[in-house]
Each structure stands twice: as structure tokens, then as C-alpha cells.
Design a protein around this nucleic acid. Structure first.
Lengths: 102, 102
DNA sequence: TTAACATATGAGCATATGTTCATATATGTA
DNA sequence: TACATATATGAACATATGCTCATATGTTAA
């Protein structure tokens, strides 16, 4: 049998999909994205809600920023973050819905 | 303001979601699941298509088995694997479709 | 300018992850 | 039984990940 194109993914596509799933593969980032799916939030607010250190939250925001999943605007010394990738939010919501349906 | 339930995810839900995304956060597992989304496959077939060692594939199948994302049946000395979680396959397909749409 | 506040960032560390290599197990066949 | 084939598994290793701690940067107000 010939190797047919439909039977496998090329590396680039698999890598790109993996990149997206990796972004969601951490509870902290999931909580952050879930928060941001509901409202724009300051770093301080996220830190309070998640009950984590400011540094840990900021590092994760940095990760999400590099992945272009969040963006921010400045107001004085406060940074307000919001999500920047509708598709990823949709995927997250589907998985969360599925979990809560069980 | 009171802390309201809608504003954050409980740890258990975030962990469970992260567990699902972690399973998909590797290119090899993505390729395997994509293959299995199309047809039941023997380990040998997967190994050939992915051009990886038998051991590497088998380890990943073990991971997917533990996560209950795949199942298998035996036919002689050959094991045929197939997917065992419709929802995860759906999520994977959505992400792949999204990537190819860009 | 100085101090206080909000946030970011680098180094270090412990743990998790994915592969390879060697070997074990299970099945079929001579 | 002995051997070949198909697959699984344990150990080892390199790399990635997520956090903490200390400190840097940017902004506002006195």
C-alpha cells in the first residue's frame, strides 16, 4: 500500500498543535485564561484570586504573552491583561464544559 | 466585593483540564491520535508511519493508555490500537482544522 | 529627588517529560 | 523445545517546566 497523505500529519502541523496544547497544559495558565475569558484583569487582581506570588503570576503572563494568547494595556502603573486568542479560549471553554458535564 | 464562584476555577477542575491538554501537548502523541482517529492501527504500523523507534512509540502508547485515551485488542501477537476518548479526538480535530485554516 | 507601589525579570532549583538502549514478555511456528 | 516476531518496560539521560528569591524597571506622589 502506498503511503497516503491523509494518514499522517506533517511535523509542522503537529508542532503547531502541540504549541497550543502546551500553552493550556498547566493549571495556573488555565486559571489565568479562564479569568481573562470573563474580564480584563490587573496583575494584582490575578495574583489575589489565584492566591499565588506576584512573581509566579508574572512569569506565567510572560509565557502567555510570548505565545500571543494575552495582551495588556497600561493605566498608570497598573497593567490590565486580556486574552488575545479567541480560538484558544473557545477550546478551553469546551474542555471545561466537558469536565463539568461528567 | 465578595469572591464569587464565577470568577475562578477550582483546583480540581483546572487540574483535570490540564491533564487533558498535557496529553495533547506532544507532537508524537498528536500524530498517534490523529492516525488512530482515522483507523485502528498496529504498533508496527504506527512505528512505520511516524518513522520512530518501536520503543518510543510503545512508551507513548503506554502514556495514552494510562490516560484512557486509547484502547487495544490483540490479534495473535499483534496489538491493534484505537482511540478511546471521543471528546479528546474532537478537540484535537478542531485545533488541527484551525491551524490548517490559517 | 525620594519613597512607595505595580510589575517584570534573571538565576537557581526541583520535578516532569521524551527519547534511547538493553532487555523482558507474549505469541506463533518449525 | 527453540526460535522468530510483535510489543512492553525499566533505567539512564538530556531537556523542559514552574516555582521561589532577589532584584530591576516603570509610574505616581510627596
Amino acid at each position: 500500500m502506498e503511503r497516503t497523505d491523509h494518514s499522517f500529519l506533517n511535523q509542522a502541523t503537529a508542532d503547531e498543535a502541540s504549541r497550543i496544547f502546551k500553552a493550556l497544559a498547566d493549571p495556573t495558565r488555565i486559571k489565568i485564561l479562564y479569568l481573562l475569558s470573563q474580564e480584563e484583569c490587573s496583575v494584582g487582581h490575578i495574583t489575589e484570586v489565584l492566591e499565588m506570588t506576584q512573581s509566579a503570576v508574572s512569569h506565567q503572563l510572560s509565557t502567555l504573552r510570548k505565545l500571543r494568547l494575552v495582551k495588556y494595556r497600561r493605566e498608570g502603573s497598573t497593567l490590565y491583561y486580556s486574552y488575545d486568542d479567541e480560538h484558544v479560549i473557545t477550546i478551553l471553554q469546551q474542555v471545561l464544559t466537558h469536565i463539568n458535564c461528567k
